[in-house]
Simulated scan of single mutants.
Amino acid sequence: MSNSLKTWLMSGREKKIMLLRHGELLRETEERRFIGQTDLPLSHMGRRQAKYWCKCLSDVPIAHIISSDLSRCMESARILCAARPIIVKPLARLREINLGGWDGMTFRRVRERWPDAFGQRGTEMARFRPPGGESFLDLQQRVVPAFEQAVDQAAGNLLMVAHAGVNRMILCHLLGMPPENLFRIAQGCGAMNLIDRQTGGFRIQAINLLPPF
């Protein structure tokens, strides 16, 4: 993390929001899958990524830590606050997008079994719902109010641990970007996004800061 961002985090002028994506997941294979609310644990690398941010933020005052209630986020959050007298608050509204019947399936299998629906998802990314699941617009309508309420209720700096889809929908909203453009925002495993809350609204200071390994 650059010295300028560290200085910003340590300054007391605005409420700081640290929006983190959980660390890398433990997977059986490298084949690409739809992973939404399937509850997968962190890998060794995922825990290492969380420990990196724990060290980086060790001097930063944090008043509240809120996390998706899925285990990959809760574990990341608990690692981050291991040395702090803070209890992580789980929040189901911060869960990743519900992919319904596609959750946990490989891209290859979905493409073979539902070729038309798979193609529709590619052309209608924001509005498409897999069977029994959510669209990204549904996700945004779920997570943005949860984000804003958490910020309003926090008495000081807030650390929020969530998922790639969740973070992208929050950032799209703050940037005024159409949800269709969500994948223009990178969110690697262990990615940190830094936001401040000022009188006039939110300002994004950094997106997709990654551990250097």
Rank of each mutant, 00 (worst) to 15 (best):
D39R: 11
L40P: 08
L40D: 13
L40F: 07
P41T: 12
L42A: 10
S43Q: 10
S43R: 08
S43T: 06
H44A: 12
H44N: 14
M45D: 09
M45Y: 01
M45G: 03
M45R: 15
G46D: 09
G46A: 07
G46V: 03
R48C: 03
A50S: 15
A50Q: 14
K51F: 03
Y52A: 06
W53S: 08
W53E: 12
C54N: 12
C54Q: 15
C54W: 01
C54E: 15
C54L: 04
K55R: 14
K55G: 07
C56M: 14
L57T: 09
D59S: 08
D59V: 05
V60E: 10
V60C: 14
I62E: 08
A63C: 06
H64K: 14
H64A: 09
I65Y: 02
I65W: 00
I65G: 02
S67W: 01
S67K: 10
S67T: 02
S67D: 11
S68D: 14
D69F: 01
L70W: 03
C73V: 03
E75V: 09
S76C: 11
A77M: 06
A77P: 07
R78H: 11
R78C: 07
R78Y: 04
I79V: 12
I79T: 08
L80R: 02
L80Q: 13
C81Q: 08
A82I: 04
A82K: 13
A83F: 01
A83W: 02
R84H: 01
R84Y: 01
P85W: 01
P85Q: 05
P85Y: 01
I86S: 03
I86D: 03
I86P: 02
I86F: 03
V88G: 07
V88I: 05
V88Q: 08
K89E: 13
K89I: 00
K89P: 00
P90L: 03
L91D: 12
L91V: 02
L91G: 00
L91F: 00
L91P: 00
A92H: 08
R93A: 15
R93P: 00
L94N: 08
L94Q: 12
L94E: 09
R95E: 11
R95H: 09
E96Y: 02
I97V: 15
I97L: 13
I97M: 11
I97A: 07
N98V: 02
N98T: 04
N98Q: 11
N98G: 07
L99H: 15
L99C: 11
G100K: 13
G101A: 06
G101R: 11
G101M: 04
W102Q: 13
W102S: 10
D103N: 14
D103K: 10
D103M: 07
D103A: 09
D103L: 05
G104W: 06
G104I: 05
M105Y: 09
M105W: 07
M105I: 04
F107S: 04
F107E: 13
F107G: 08
R109V: 06
V110A: 09
V110L: 10
R111A: 15
R111N: 13
R111G: 11
R111S: 13
E112R: 14
W114S: 14
W114H: 15
